[in-house]
Design a protein around this nucleic acid. Structure first.
Lengths: 330, 330
DNA sequence: CTGAAAGCGCTAACAA
DNA sequence: TTGTTAGCGCTTTCAG
């Protein structure tokens, strides 16, 4: 009772050739109304549906899109996944989600895999991948969209426009008298460094803030790493008056640590996150953060991917603007 | 420069037939050490890798597993996805995530799709699907695992063992003098009703609690529905002293509403969730909840799926035990 | 232990 | 406007 109905069966039932059935389905060739009706009749009489696997083998392209992220359990990526799926479903694409754990080996392997599988495209948030790792897959003509803070050469990119937001956040800190600012940044060995950290240090001086080298700690984008980083910072001889975190999950980790250490936020120290996942407004104190809307990022990524699938070849970059959201933690 | 290297090329390079290459790869037939070495040499000299699409066409089964959930942006399902992916990756399976929005039409369509795509299996959290909707796909021999509170006939099932936890939770309410208990339950038209609600009403009387019919409201498993449900309950002539929610997201919605209404939790009213997603311990007051560990559910589901793929045919049910977690909201 | 060959179900030339 | 046909790259009988 499985789908044992092939195009051949339909063709026979409709008294045409299987090619005609194919053309009725794809519309790639004019077909008489009569034959069309006859074929369509046979199709739903027999309950036929096209075998996507055979089709993929023949055309060399599947309807699968890979979404490669560090961790789908991270709310930012979960929401990103949701919005990409929503955008792509209409066009019949399925989304294969894979987790890299931000590990370079996994990032490479999953990109390879997308190539072998002849996926229709890849949306990826790389952390440690070499910037030239896209050569092979782009050489195979598989569309790639990268979501990252770092500029990548020759690849479609969705990236934040966050200069203004960072300036706002730091202006806000300065206004409340916080001068000595620390940063819980991303991993030291991330490809292209940590642009979020870069933006902060770039603007600090002009805004009257100081980011001492010893007040910069590195770690993964996780809650645990955030807690660890915060504790490290609190050992500093000159305790910072504010901590800016690479994302909201690390900021939550910092709050965990602050609680353990008996430090009050924002009394003893101001805390800022990045992304504005739902959790940011749910924790207490509510977390001030630089909002980078996952949903919009996903929409943009899906858009770029579809454009490539539809034939665009010149790489494009979409900047999603980030905003400072002031809440109780700063 | 794409993967234009086929088994034929490898065969020629190794001076054997493509059948032999296939057998070297699959190990389904004994092969001399000499030929094996020669083939393996050719394989990595040419950078060959097997085309999964051709393989799927031939065998009639792909290495894709469908994960069909209401909303991957819901932390419970995100974590479920993560753990399933972790379990399945080792065996080479990829996970295709789809969102149903808990809509029956989508649930049916996505199940169908898994059939057409010849997926290796399906893990599904159904809400409104008819219980006999699995016939077709099971008839096609595609393994299915359902994660649900409701018992489903003839399908592998991962389901909570929550009687004890519910009794604990309600005992706790009774002990703190809450007698009049309300429930924010799942949708009224869910397949098999709402077993979480069922468990509550089943135990209420024996524990000295009262769940009045007008204190049961229905809605989706979302934050918004939770807020709406809570507001409805607060209009009740006899305001309940405790509210039990079908999951943590609805409980968070209830907290949203409580704040708007100026009600104190747990002072004016106790609040309980269900699942224990990370957010439960992050909101204030921290949410008491009935912990149903998504990670374990995912592991069990993956296990069941693999067993089926490996040939088991008799349906199996795994019960994951739930526990009451007492926090500040009750 | 190895090879030859027949397809899996579809698409896209090429003919008619 | 339609049909014929040759594969896409693999697995798996059936012979050797």
């Amino acid at each position: 009772m499985a789908q044992r109905v092939t195009m051949h069966d339909v063709a026979r039932a409709a008294g045409v050739s299987s090619a005609t059935v194919s053309y009725v389905l794809s519309g790639k060739r004019p077909v008489t109304d009569a034959t069309r009706r006859s074929v369509e009749g046979a199709i739903d009489r027999l309950g036929f549906s096209l075998n996507p696997v055979a089709r993929s083998l023949r055309t060399g392209r599947s309807m699968m899109v890979a979404l490669v992220v560090p961790d789908i359990a991270n709310p930012f990526y979960a929401l990103l996944a949701r919005s990409i799926q929503d955008e792509l479903r209409g066009r019949g694409y399925h989304v294969v989600v894979s987790n890299t754990g931000a590990e370079r080996g996994e990032e490479e392997a999953l990109l390879q895999e997308a190539l072998h599988q002849r996926f229709a495209g890849v949306v990826m948030t790389p952390f440690r991948l070499a910037t030239d790792a896209y050569e092979a897959i782009r050489g195979a003509g598989i569309p790639v969209v990268v979501s990252a803070d770092t500029p990548f050469c020759d690849v479609d990119l969705v990236t934040p426009d966050a200069e203004g937001a960072v300036v706002d956040a730091m202006t806000h800190l300065a206004a409340s008298g916080r001068r000595n600012v620390a940063v819980i940044a991303g991993p030291r060995d991330a490809t292209g460094g940590d642009p979020r950290l870069g933006r902060i240090t770039a603007h600090a001086a002009a805004l009257g803030l100081q980011v001492r080298p010893e007040n910069i700690v590195h770690g993964e984008h996780t809650r645990e790493a955030g807690a660890e980083g915060f504790e490290k910072l609190m050992l500093s001889a000159r305790r910072p008056e504010a901590v800016m975190c690479v994302n909201d999950m690390t900021a939550v980790g910092a709050m965990d640590a602050a609680e353990r250490l008996g430090l009050d936020i924002p009394g003893d120290i101001a805390l800022l996150g990045h992304d504005d996942i739902d959790i940011a407004a749910l924790v207490r104190p509510r977390l001030s953060t630089i909002r980078y809307p996952a949903r919009e990022v996903g929409v943009a990524a899906a858009q770029l991917l579809l454009e490539q699938i539809d034939g665009r070849t010149r790489p494009r970059t979409v900047r999603v603007v980030a905003h400072f959201v002031s809440r109780a933690s700063s």
